[in-house]
């Protein structure tokens, strides 16, 4: 079979890499967070999903996000489907703007990631309000801030989502 010439339009990513990174993010979620650290805890899993959606949209898509969301629901002990819904909505927005996003500069991307994280949190907040939970005030959005900081650290360490240059 003849393969389409894998141009450097996209990063070549192995599926194992994606799943392994998601597993690591999931274990980060499972760490025994408590007290103020719990309030600050960034959404590791969603960050990794966003990263892969920007970098390898053919490998990681809304379905992946939904599936991982179910496991997050299981781990947090909440009603099944709430994180799944939040991740689905967030990744939808990410997928819609993916082609534009990879052309963005770092700072533009950072703002965009912050927006995505807030969308996820707002979806969760809506669901939880329907369930009858009370609001936590503005501190509820702290994980979005820490998430963006974590994203910036990851970018500084050399992970980038921008389209690879053609001159390879």
């Amino acid at each position: 079979m003849l393969l389409a010439p894998q141009t450097n339009l996209m990063h070549k990513t192995k599926l194992q890499t994606i799943y392994l990174s998601l597993l690591v993010a999931f274990i980060c979620l499972l760490l025994p967070w408590s007290g103020f650290a719990l309030k600050l805890r960034p959404d590791f899993v969603l960050l990794v999903i966003i990263f892969w959606i920007l970098r390898a949209p053919n490998r990681c898509n809304i379905g992946t996000a939904w599936f991982i969301g179910l496991w997050v629901d299981l781990a947090t002990g909440g009603v099944f489907g709430q994180h799944a819904l939040a991740y689905t909505v967030t990744t939808f927005v990410a997928v819609i703007y993916q082609r534009r996003l990879v052309l963005f500069s770092n700072s533009q991307q950072l703002v965009y990631v912050l927006l995505l994280l807030i969308i996820s949190q707002l979806t969760l907040l809506t669901v939880k309000t329907f369930e009858g939970n009370e609001s936590l005030g503005w501190a509820y959005f702290l994980p979005s801030i820490t998430g963006v900081i974590l994203w910036q650290i990851a970018v500084a360490l050399g992970l980038n989502t921008s389209r690879p240059s053609r001159s390879k």
Binding site: W33, A75, T76
Partner: peptide, 8 residues
């Protein structure tokens, strides 16, 4: 560990 949901 403490519950992972900050709401509860």
């Amino acid at each position: 560990h403490v519950g992972r949901d900050p709401f509860t």
